[in-house]
Amino acid sequence: MAYESPTREEIKRILEDSHTIAVVGLSDKPDRTSYMVAEAMQAKGYRIIPVNPNADSILGEKSYASLKDIPEKVDIVNVFRRSEHTPPIAEEAVSIGAASIWLQLGIANDETAAIAKQGGLKVVMDRCIKVEDAILLPQGKSKS
């Protein structure tokens, strides 16, 4: 089963239905893309949960060593890791009951997509969540 990108309408629904984003590979360095994207998503109204075993907190939120350490529901697992490192992240995303996995721009892996889809997750690959959110929800995240 080959990966097929969700339509813009499907991506909009993923964003509208999501409140909590666990960011795997979120850097604590403000000049890094992962930091800038997560900061922008936080400013738009999403709850950001950093997943970085080398940081205590990022963007004012407690950082966790792995997805399985997060004690609350996660809607989107947003991934800033090289493509070859994403299959185990998909397995963890399935195990914690996340709704979606989102691999950032330049990151794609068919095995990751298959694992996530088999586990019932929606899959977005090779797209920037910040760009998609800016296009599809320009007024920001509604508080529902």
Rank of each mutant, 00 (worst) to 15 (best):
M1S: 15
M1W: 13
M1T: 13
A2L: 10
A2E: 11
Y3L: 02
Y3H: 03
E4T: 15
S5V: 10
P6C: 05
T7F: 10
T7H: 05
E10M: 05
I11E: 08
I11K: 09
I11Q: 09
K12P: 13
I14T: 05
I14C: 10
S18Y: 03
S18V: 01
H19F: 09
T20D: 00
T20F: 00
A22E: 04
A22S: 11
V23M: 05
V24N: 04
V24K: 04
L26F: 06
S27F: 03
D28V: 04
K29L: 11
P30G: 02
D31C: 04
D31F: 06
R32Y: 03
R32M: 09
Y35P: 11
V37D: 00
A38V: 02
E39C: 09
E39Q: 13
M41C: 05
M41N: 12
A43G: 11
K44D: 11
R47H: 03
I48P: 06
I49S: 00
I49A: 09
P50W: 00
P50N: 01
P50I: 01
N52E: 02
P53H: 11
P53I: 01
N54H: 15
N54M: 13
D56G: 14
I58H: 11
L59P: 07
G60P: 02
G60A: 07
G60L: 12
G60C: 00
E61K: 14
A65S: 13
A65D: 15
S66Q: 08
S66L: 13
S66D: 11
S66G: 07
D69A: 12
P71T: 11
E72L: 12
K73I: 08
V74I: 13
V74K: 08
D75W: 07
V79M: 05
F80Y: 15
S83C: 00
S83R: 02
E84Y: 15
P87I: 07
P87G: 10
P88F: 05
I89F: 02
A90L: 11
A90P: 10
A90V: 06
E91R: 12
E92K: 12
A93C: 08
V94N: 05
S95K: 10
S95F: 07
S100Q: 07
S100Y: 01
I101R: 06
I101N: 09
L103N: 00
L103A: 08
L103F: 00
L103P: 08
Q104G: 09
G106I: 05
I107H: 11
N109P: 04
N109C: 06
N109K: 01
E111I: 14
T112F: 00
A113T: 01
A113V: 14
I115P: 10
A116W: 00
K117N: 06
K117M: 14
Q118K: 12
Q118I: 01
G119Y: 04
G120H: 02
L121S: 01
V124N: 08
M125N: 09
M125Q: 15
D126H: 04
D126Y: 14
R127W: 04
V131P: 04
L136I: 07
L136K: 03
L137I: 08
P138L: 01
Q139F: 12
G140K: 07
S142G: 10
K143Y: 09
K143Q: 09
S144N: 15
